[in-house]
């Protein structure tokens, strides 16, 4: 069974550009809609790119702002100023 990297975000205006950038940048991501939240799953890894979020948001975005809308996650986290990655790779 493939290891599933996963991120759950609030479903609100702050999170929408992040959700859209995840859908655009991660092929094969699976979406589970819950009331008020959305769970995004993908085999092995999921990446959030600062540049893609900024493109949708129209202003500078610090990956740490994700703390305001993050509900849950699975995978080992690697974060720097340009991206936020969850993965089971080593």
């Amino acid at each position: 069974m493939a290891q599933v990297a996963s991120i759950t975000l609030m479903l609100n205006d702050d999170a929408r550009p992040i959700i859209e950038s995840i859908l655009a940048d991660n092929t094969g991501v699976r979406v589970l809609n819950m009331t008020g939240a959305v769970k995004l799953d993908r085999d092995e890894s999921i990446v959030i790119n600062r540049a893609s979020v900024e493109e949708r948001l129209g202003r500078p975005w610090d990956p740490q702002e994700i703390h305001l809308v993050l509900i849950s996650m699975a995978g080992n986290l690697d974060e720097d100023d340009d991206q936020f990655t969850l993965s089971w790779r080593h």
Binding site: M10, M34, T35, G36, A37, L70, I71, S72
Partner: peptide, 24 residues
């Protein structure tokens, strides 16, 4: 996660908000 989403689904916007705020 499923429980707080359940609060929202049951019309309790106050509880889902503290739930997801805590969960963040």
């Amino acid at each position: 996660v499923p429980f707080m989403s359940g609060a929202a689904y049951n019309g309790d916007m106050s509880t889902v908000t503290f739930g997801f705020s805590a969960q963040s």
